[in-house]
Simulated assay, not measured.
Amino acid sequence: MAFITLASALVVAAGKNLVRSLFMFFVTLFGLAGLYVLALADFVAVTQIVIYVGGILVLILFAFMLSGKEALNKVSVQADGFISLKNAPALLLAGLFLVIMFNVVFKAQADNLPWVQAAISNQNIMPVNGTGINHIGVNLMTRYLLPFEVISILLMLALVGAAHLSRKPKEDEV
């Protein structure tokens, strides 16, 4: 699952064809959801599919479909290769983040974390119960209901605004 996720993410990042990159991004997001399922984070996996695959990816797909052919041609034409002097700061920053990430992972001592020790003492049997999901649901529908609804209205307004901006003007309006 990790190989599928990483390989499709590399195709997205290095691909020159926008349509192929968009559909490989779809595979990447589903692969990430599969990794969440394997990590016993079922709620996060379902949220990944509903929010990112169902919402964000569809929004990107609509933006792609509503874009003019001229704009898509300008984006798809790359003058230089992936590794060029123009991309040097971004590649340097990405390398720096990679070094920091590996440093943090190797110094974290994941075997000494309390929940890992508890899993080892329970013979790696982690009971799956619905208490975490129940708490999330109760908090979303009671304590955080107003921010939840405000965010949903804000996202709806952004979608309506994007649809309005993408429509072609009538000849009378020009």
Rank of each mutant, 00 (worst) to 15 (best):
T142P: 04
Q123M: 06
V138G: 07
H135W: 06
H135R: 09
G130F: 01
N112F: 00
V138H: 08
V128D: 06
A119R: 08
P127T: 07
V128C: 02
Q117A: 11
P127L: 05
L113R: 10
I136K: 11
V116F: 02
G132W: 00
V150L: 15
A119C: 09
N129A: 00
M141G: 05
D111E: 07
L140H: 10
A118N: 05
M141P: 00
L113A: 14
G132C: 02
L146N: 14
V116S: 01
S121G: 03
A110G: 07
D111T: 12
N139V: 07
T131N: 11
S152C: 03
V116N: 03
N129I: 01
G137D: 04
A119W: 02
L140W: 07
Y144S: 13
M126E: 03
I125A: 07
D111I: 11
S152M: 08
A119Q: 07
M126S: 03
L145G: 05
L113C: 05
V116R: 09
I153N: 08
I125C: 06
P114W: 00
T131M: 13
G130A: 05
I136S: 09
V150E: 04
I120C: 03
N134E: 15
I125K: 15
V138P: 02
V150N: 06
N139L: 08
V150S: 02
I120W: 09
V128I: 15
M126W: 01
D111L: 08
T142R: 09
P147H: 13
S121M: 09
V116W: 04
A119K: 01
M126K: 02
S121T: 12
I151D: 02
G137K: 14
I125T: 15
A119M: 12
H135S: 14
E149L: 14
L140K: 13
M141I: 07
M141K: 03
S121Y: 04
N124F: 06
D111W: 03
G130M: 04
V150M: 11
I153L: 09
I120K: 15
I153T: 13
V128K: 08
P114C: 02
V128S: 05
I153E: 01
Y144W: 15
S121I: 10
Q123T: 04
T142M: 04
I120H: 10
V150T: 15
A110F: 05
Q117P: 00
P114F: 02
D111R: 04
T131I: 15
N129V: 01
F148K: 03
N134S: 15
A110V: 11
P147M: 13
S152D: 06
A119D: 07
P114Y: 01
T131F: 09
E149I: 12
N129K: 10
V150Q: 11
N129T: 00
N134R: 14
R143V: 12
Q117T: 14
N124S: 08
Q123F: 03
